[in-house]
Nucleic acid binder design. Sequence first.
DNA 1: CCCTGATTCGC
DNA 2: GCGAATCAGG
Length: 246
Amino acid sequence: MSWTDERIETLRKLWENGLTASQIADELGGVSRNAVIGKAHRLGLKSRPSPVKTAEDNSEAKATPAKAGAERTARPAPVAKPAAPRVPTPTPAAKAAVPARPSAPAAPVSRTEPEASASVAAPAVPPAEARKPDGPRLVSIGPGGFIRQGPGDQQAPIPPAPPRRRVPAKPTPEMADKTSLLDLNDRICRWPMGHPGEPDFHFCGEAVNPGYPYCVDHCGRAFQAQLPRGTRRPPPPPPFGGPRVR
DNA sequence: CCCTGATTCGC
DNA sequence: GCGAATCAGG
């Protein structure tokens, strides 16, 4: 597959949005993570916190001859590589294929800049009960606070891990008016609707509550007032009948 | 092991 | 220019 203007633009956007190279590769489809990184560098997009130390800010680096030899300026032994066509690992099925990883330690929030980052970054996926805006019951009672549910009361089953998509997301008619990952900017609500990987996964798309990454409605869901100190929260139901009383 | 981005270098 | 191979840190 070639780098059309469109694909390059997508790459740019996603890269600057803080998505990982793998995610971008998935999104584009037909390219590898390496291809994305390579292209990004060629485009001059580089520089994002890399796990690998680039700058030799170590003063000892110069002072250590042995280390200097291992430096990548001169590659030691390129050597002949016989037949080692790297097996591209067909489909590691049990991987999450989310556009914006919920678990995101990669939370792009901290990627760009501590300050203005909050608005641009893809958000962590909100608590499960909040993902269904039309759901009747709210279980969250505030930041970090959740009412324990009884055993028979569980609601979110196991999210089956969708396989990684190696094919470009086809714009379907019914998705035409939905807000896709690519449509996100700091002015529209990025509240996820549905689950990443589902065919109709999209984002809210309303105008944001100024200063927040969500619209007014979803700000209300994302940022719930803390209960006053000393407020007793309803005790969780004892598991399986609770402790024996004697 | 998995992931990440960076770099090199044959094509 | 492209991207697989490789490196190196987390």
